[in-house]
Amino acid sequence: MTSIKPTEKLRTRDVIAAAKKNEKFGKIIPHLLLAVTSVTVLATFGIIYTLLKETFIFFQEVKVTDFIFGTEWAPFSNADQAFGVLPLITGTLKIAGVALLIGVPFGLACAIFLSEYASPKLKKFIKPIIELLAGIPTIVYGFFALTVVTPWLQSFIPQLKLFNALSAGIVVGIMILPMIISLSEDALSAVPASFREGSYALGSTRFETAIKVVVPAAISGIAASIILAASRAVGETMIVSLAAGSTPVLNMDFTGSIQTMTSYIVQVATGDAGYGTTIYYSIYAVGFMLFLFTFLMNRAALYIKTKFREEY
């Protein structure tokens, strides 16, 4: 980059030369920046490539159908090693199910309160606290589940084990709250005031306006926020690793230890399964499954948000 010092006596020739140099430089810039920007594309392809490559090796040792439809996950068993992923998916769905059961009603109630009822002053007090909740690392949530929530639940559910799906699911539900609240509140706040005024003019109460006018008008944004939160719950790792145990089971019991796709990956990574073993490759197959789940959910959320957006 050439610039001309203001103190120098300006000669037209120099000014033109400097401008030409700048022009040349300016032409390279976007290409350099584009090269750097391509890193994001490389990262996505890197993820897909590594997952696919190692998963492919895994499927040379384990049949694809045995993996997808298998009902037993026993990678560490010497006698009858089995790689049926259904127990891990069941565990993941248990966590996501409990999390949504907590996160959706609480999150939507908070979002409606913030957007329809709270005064700007109250909002200014509440929002930073919810942002604080969003900034807490998941390892802290996991520790909270293990040391606070589980003992508390055990005080009225005596058969609850130390590691269980219920406690971990509830805490994952708390973790996804800020996401549901802020995204849904954005959707609710985007509904024009004229909608509310029209509803009031017809004699509706504030609650009727919120439920029958504002929420339906914002439903695409709310649905997208719920799907995104579900995808976060599916991908959540530390809470389930700490509080939900590591027992892959295929049942409907929420009081016992389970294993999710994510916590299996962590279990193998902390153990000493050597490089190149079937167990080593299995984490990539599970990781690929997890990637597919979350990828499809995120795409679905985006699709719903753009496709079914109400035009005001």
Binding site: S38, E236, T294
Partner: peptide
């Protein structure tokens, strides 16, 4: 590129670990 960025934002962190490991 923009689609890639939004996809990348939704990838679970444990999967990034697998990328880094490989």
């Amino acid at each position: 590129i923009e689609m890639n960025i939004s996809n990348l934002a939704g990838v679970p962190s444990v999967v990034f670990g697998l990328l880094g490991l490989t």
